[in-house]
Amino acid sequence: MAKFRIKRYNPEKQAEPYYEEFDYDIPEGATLLDCLNHLKWNVDGTLTYRMSCRSAICGSCAMKGNGHALLACQKQAAHLLKDGSDTITIEPLGNMPVIKDLATDFQQFWDKVDQVKPYLQNKEKPPERERQQSPQQFRKIDDATTCIMCGACYSDCNVLEVDKNFLGPAALAKAQRFVGDSRDQATRDRIKELSKPGGMWDCTHCGECVERCPKPAEPFYRIKELMAVGLEEGVTNNVGARHALSFVKSVKHSGRLNESKIPIESMGYFNIKGLLDLVPVGLRMLLKMKIPPIIHKPIDDAKDVRRIFEEFGE
């Protein structure tokens, strides 16, 4: 017998959320959604959640199982019982207001999708037949187009937890779907927008979105593709881009990071406020002798590394 510990919330009845436990013997092969349906249809009809396709394509039934976002229809319930535990904790998605039980308000999610101008921009008169696109070009956007907008990545995004201004993984993946599309002509405008605060450079690399994505969309990898396009396009007047360039330069030069230079080069030599921000921590570390050696020592055979950088176009 498994215990489903479900976070309940119904402001019509009670202002505060609470957890309620339901016992249910998980039938073989039952998905989490099957179990929730059993509880709703046989035990408590007020239990509220979204669902529709139950084949992992509509994106309705995203919620948290044992603290991590997932699609209820895609998850075998028994797989949520680990280490002999008999309890599965079910909660609504994170980073969104809760409406009732497991149903959350997606407004901000969609607003952010809207912000990236989520449609093809091409001013040319279309040809009579299809526009040409090679299989290789198609492959560049293949993964991003598998996104089902379920919100699982958004829910568990570490940056969104602390900064609601961040576009978030789903919207950025959607942006990559157009930036990477050979038919789209707004690459530079898009990249400029995405390079602003709250955009792609605000991603903290935590990998949660890759882990939670139920499809091959895996937003973090799409974000990295955006960054590469940003650098390629020369949209570098921002800390994120300068940081990447400084980093590459440093490793090319000596095979390892020059930690003293990178913060300064990233902020930009003329970014007075940014540089001033570095002063307290810099001084603090200096006082503790917690600074890199004054003379930056390259790795052995740094020459070979430099050669490889050059071979690959840096």
Partner: peptide, 14 residues
């Protein structure tokens, strides 16, 4: 003589 792992930053560029 091992070089930096790239720290997920070099791959932003290359």
């Amino acid at each position: 003589s091992a070089a930096c792992c790239g720290a997920g930053v070099i791959s932003e560029k290359n």
